[in-house]
Design a protein around this nucleic acid. Sequence first.
DNA 1: ACAAATATATAACATTTGTTATAAATAAAA
DNA 2: TTTTATTTATAACAAATGTTATATATTTGT
Lengths: 234, 234
Amino acid sequence: MKDFFTQFDFQSNLLFKELTPEENQLVFNVMEPLTIKKGNMLFYEQGIPTGIFQIKHGKAKKFKRGFSGEEQIFYIYTNGDVLGYHALLGEERYQDSCQALEDLEVNFIAKNDFLRLLKEIPSLQHTFIKNISHEFGVLANTIAVLAQKDQKTRLAIFLLLLEKRFSQNSEKIQGIDLTRDDLANIIGTSQESLGRSLKQLKEEEIIEIDKRRIYIKNRYPLLEFLDLKLTDLK
Amino acid sequence: MKDFFTQFDFQSNLLFKELTPEENQLVFNVMEPLTIKKGNMLFYEQGIPTGIFQIKHGKAKKFKRGFSGEEQIFYIYTNGDVLGYHALLGEERYQDSCQALEDLEVNFIAKNDFLRLLKEIPSLQHTFIKNISHEFGVLANTIAVLAQKDQKTRLAIFLLLLEKRFSQNSEKIQGIDLTRDDLANIIGTSQESLGRSLKQLKEEEIIEIDKRRIYIKNRYPLLEFLDLKLTDLK
DNA sequence: ACAAATATATAACATTTGTTATAAATAAAA
DNA sequence: TTTTATTTATAACAAATGTTATATATTTGT
């Protein structure tokens, strides 16, 4: 059984990690550094794919509009994550949208360069397909959480997951820095209802809030509430 | 924008549909007919993959256990659907489980035969990767429904989807034949709460129930309730 | 620095959903 | 068939969540 965090993590920060120094150089050579301003889109649902991105620094939300049009966030990417390859591997348009939550520094790899890399580095195509397969499982696990857990439980789960995600490739403790709207959207509830639960956690001294940023002060009550043993966390 | 049904359908009944007669023969040659009894597993989460299946006749549920162990159904396969290829393409263990909901007639393609087919039929690998990419979008859409819609709305959506799915490759109207438990599990609610909503729909003469089988008598109120235009349905 | 716009917090109330309990119907086994 | 087990239906009540409204805090733009 994959551990708790792995079950909900795309692990897309590991995609270029298994390369030899030579292969790594090939990848590095075709990377183009870019800055993307807060609020700008990395790509749009139904847009024609132009390449893939690696986030050097910052956060981006991946979302999709359901058939009645409301945005649903299903992943938050952060430092080191590689994204945008589904559409290229599937040779189709983007199936979801990705937007910068803060100013981003990214490395961009253009479509043709990426396709060439796939040929030059034999293991790479397999690594990507394997990751998509893993991501499929992450979405299935997310479905289970949303379908089975009540709101307070979903909040506890995503607080733990997001805190961990945001500390990825980063020295200091980041806390969870998302708008209440985005956080409510992730856990599938209303902003007001989310606020009520956050207030409770604050009163129980499990979290601390500074401006909008949420810090987990004491994770043990959360783990206990979720029936997680420390060993589940690796 | 993909139409309503396509947004929630893996379309895994189309995977072998684009082949030339010669290619089709190659596939046919390695298919081994099998019968799988109701309740038996086609494969298990964490099991080592042995091959892929095409359902000739019957229904099977695909599910995954969340971190606290409850089963979550995230897809129902039916006539014509091909399944079990994620694990082979990703060269990893099965990431979910699949169980026969009734006696199944399937065609089985053993791992090595399938891998050989991928080499012999150049378009095939691409078709499968493209489909996984599409399935990824289906799961994202499912997340949006579970996170954003209330229980009655989720029921309306899944009734329409399941009715359509079950009529796939089948002449007569099938209705929706699932245990209340499985249906409740799919839409993410309790059996009792599901029962309450079904009763309402029965009173409004939108559905009809015979034994456990649910028939949609009048789909227009459902479509209106979901704010769907007929053109959304293709 | 200031005004305007946006985001957050909170409470009261309405509605939805879950839970517990029990009976009836159906399916499976003897 | 008869008995037993399982599944479905339903109601009363409790708990969770959504909604509306309003106040306060924070961010953004000038």
